[in-house]
């Protein structure tokens, strides 16, 4: 459960699957470890929490004792969610949109793809890949697609995409292996803003389809 990742980080494994309850425990533990001496920063995963610690002043075992103590408090915690954010989305409108391909592969209409994707609320399970990229779950089984056989060299910023039971939004133009189904004008990452990231781990996200007329 507590594994070293090199000599200055500890990986805490809270489960082995993508599961909302396990992920809530990850975020609850992350919350309890904020501003704890010896811990430099933390990175929530789907079912893990990576803890970067001050290895010049703390041993792995000392950090383990601190984390175990916090984990004992988890049972009593009421799982909190972060903010609720809406993402206005123009479906099918991104350059290189794969929405037609997804509809054909799943034998449903494009309108169905939009309805199924937009009807659910998603949680930011974790962030990574590029600055500000939210891994959102859990996508409806009816939209489950494999990754692209060959990643695209350039996926434009704001692209809303799906892969497996996940959906996400590309903050920056970057290579990408997910199927793109829409686009948002929201800026997910702006290093010069005092709040540089639109999303935070554990936020709740709802996609709002825009009509072609709004686009």
């Amino acid at each position: 459960m507590f594994k070293p990742l090199g000599d200055a980080a500890m990986l805490v494994e809270l489960g082995q699957q993508i599961d909302p309850l396990i992920n809530q425990r990850v975020h609850a533990l992350n919350f309890l470890l904020r501003a704890v001496a010896g811990i430099i920063e933390t990175v929530p995963g789907y079912c893990t929490l990576l803890i970067h610690y001050d290895a010049l002043n703390y041993s792995f075992d000392q950090i383990k004792v601190i984390v175990e103590e916090k984990m004992n408090q988890l049972g009593e915690m009421h799982p909190e969610t972060g903010r609720r954010l809406e993402v206005p989305t123009r479906y099918g409108n991104a350059s290189n949109s794969d929405i037609g391909l997804v509809a054909a592969a799943k034998n449903i209409s494009i309108a169905d793809v939009i309805r199924i994707h937009a009807e659910k609320e998603y949680r930011v399970y974790m962030m990574g890949f590029t600055p500000g990229f939210p891994y959102l779950g859990i996508l409806d089984e009816r939209l489950k697609m494999p990754r692209l056989p060959t990643p695209r060299n350039q996926t434009q910023a704001g692209s809303v995409a799906i892969a497996g039971l996940q959906t996400g939004i590309y903050p920056l133009a970057s290579p990408g292996g997910w199927h793109v189904i829409g686009w948002t004008a929201l800026k997910l990452f702006d290093p010069n803003n005092t709040a540089p990231f639109l999303f935070a781990p554990n936020d709740v996200v709802k996609f709002i389809p825009l009509d072609a007329a709004d686009a």
Binding site: L5, A9, I18, Y46, C47, T48, L50, G128, Y135
Partner: peptide, 28 residues
């Protein structure tokens, strides 16, 4: 399942190629 990684982490690609992650590497 994607998880955090750190400077010096050695990932193995599906083709069996090691990649050592450095200062500008993705965080996960």
């Amino acid at each position: 399942i994607s998880e955090g990684m750190t400077t010096g982490s050695i990932q193995i690609t599906p083709q069996g190629q090691p990649i050592v992650m450095l200062a500008d590497a993705p965080t996960t």
